[in-house]
Amino acid sequence: MADVGYINQDSFLHRLDARTKLILMLAILVVVLVFTDPIYVIAILFLVLGAWKLAKLPLNMVGDIFKYFTGIAVIIFVLQAFFYPGETNLLQISNPIPAIGFSGYITLQGVMYGLALVLRLVVIMTVAPLLVMTTPMSDLMLALVKFKVPYRFAFILTTAMSLFPSIQNRAELIQQAQLCRGVGDFESGNFFVRLRASASILTPLILGAFRDSQILDVAMSSRAFGAPIQRTFLLESHFRQADYIFLAGSCLSLVGAVILRIMHLGVV
């Protein structure tokens, strides 16, 4: 499975506070879910792609992302084009087929709605990598703490993130050991064989990791984890003028989107 990470660049998006970017991302998510008119959704998509370009991120990655949802995008579009109950007929395909709920026509509203849902998917899929590639992990964690997410949860996130590579290494070791025992075929074979092989890794992996957790528990206890003290942080983050502007913009767009929706604008 493809993964993405922080790309170090000097751009306005990189300089924004991680909290601002999180709020922006959620605002975009809400706004894109409010509208079902493709013109409105295209406008949001251009905004996201513009941010992508301004952040100096490789645009070919958008194409890579598209590979992952081409199939579902086609399914969404075809289903809406054929089965959405529209009023303006565009094209007659066949006689009505009541058994599958097909009126026989492709309607303008169906095409518009299908297009809007596909564009919605594109926006949702491109906005999350935008945050990840412009924000170092430490800043993201700090943002969560600043949002008053309990420190214990932020600790779980950072610890899990740092333990992930060692657990992956351990999984590879177990995989090699299981291969030596002839337990499973991890590379070839049908997916049932591969899934069963993956399951044969999980049990020893979980047990080994749980054993390690006891060492971590002792280390945490010896450092008085959870003691009721005022916690300080090595890294600090502060809102700047640009952050306030973007936060105000996010709030205004949210309110604006809701008002437009109440006025039945942006809806097919």
Binding site: R152, F155, I156, L157, T159, A160, M161, L163, F164, I167, Q168, A171, L205, I206, A209, F210, D212, S213, Q214, L216, D217, M220, F225, G226
Partner: peptide
């Protein structure tokens, strides 16, 4: 224990 929860989260990611 929080340590166990963190380990489970790391296993989940893997």
């Amino acid at each position: 224990p929080v340590s166990l929860i963190a380990i489970w989260a790391a296993l989940f990611v893997a």
